[in-house]
């Protein structure tokens, strides 16, 4: 077998496949951070997953939902909600279920107990590919419009950095493609676990734009588009990011 046949094909194939699909931010992290995410004993996000597991039992979620049946759910969100006639995200669904079915008092969207519940539910889908809801085409189109719209005093769009310039360096930081497959995730910059909405606020604030209100139609449309463009990427919750 020639050296070319032995060594030439696989890297080339990997390159072609790699270039063809979305690339998780995991791929461009340092080996140390990748190891931190992989090791459940060292991944700080696992604390929230465990807290979520305890809440799930204590708040009565487990009365209806077997944890095993949650496998795959996060990979399908945001999903179409018939009552709303549009998308609902995982955080919205958990909040609705808690309040309407379990009769619990509302929790703020980004409170630690809500993040913990969301982490626990999303963690059940770890490793499963994102499978966008086909009924959300309209929301995704609106989300893509927002993704490509330049905004803020610095007049930048999501697409300019996270599509065209992904892989470049903004000051000292690598620009990732900006996929939502690891949320809620532990971010070293935050020293905390946080939501996709929090991450989006960071970018909006960075370009000096008014952030989208979490749970608003615009925020849900953008979220639906982000999950659509990340189709096939595995859920990593709880991911670790710099």
């Amino acid at each position: 077998m020639s050296p070319w046949r032995r060594q030439g094909w696989l890297p080339l194939l990997a390159l072609l496949l790699g270039a063809a699909g979305p690339r998780s931010g995991f791929e461009t992290m340092t080996p140390e951070l990748q190891a931190m995410q992989r090791d459940d004993a060292g991944n700080p996000g696992m604390l929230s997953v465990l807290e979520g597991e305890a809440l799930f039992a204590r708040e009565g979620c487990a009365a209806c939902h077997a944890a095993a049946a949650l496998r795959g759910v996060a990979a399908r969100y945001p999903a179409h909600d018939a009552a709303r006639g549009g998308p609902i995200d995982l955080a919205g669904r958990i909040a609705e279920c808690r309040e309407q079915r379990a009769g619990r008092p509302p929790l703020p969207r980004e409170s630690q107990p809500m993040l913990a519940l969301q982490s626990f539910v999303a963690h059940q889908s770890r490793g499963l590919p994102i499978t966008p809801d086909p009924r959300l085409a309209e929301a995704r189109a609106e989300g893509e419009r927002l993704f490509r719209e330049r905004r803020g005093q610095l007049n930048l769009s999501c697409a300019q950095c996270h599509e065209t310039l992904a892989g470049g360096r903004l000051a000292g930081a690598n620009i990732p493609e900006g996929h939502p497959n690891g949320y809620p995730l532990y971010r070293l910059e935050w020293q905390a676990l946080g939501s996709l909405q929090r991450r989006l606020r960071g970018c909006f604030t960075g370009v000096r734009a008014e952030p989208l209100a979490p749970g608003s139609p615009a925020a849900l449309a953008l979220e639906a588009y982000l999950f659509g463009r990340a189709a096939g990427l595995p859920i990593e919750t709880p991911a670790v990011r710099p």
């Binding site: 905004r151 803020g152 005093q153 007049n155 930048l156 909006f204 000096r208 734009a209």
Partner: peptide, 24 residues
């Protein structure tokens, strides 16, 4: 261009309140 306009507020969308109407 990627380069923001440092002394024009024309055509900007969704500028945060703190920066409204102000050039960079």
């Amino acid at each position: 261009t990627l380069m923001p306009a440092y002394f024009s507020t024309a055509g900007l969308v969704g500028v945060a309140d703190a920066w409204q109407g102000r050039p960079i």
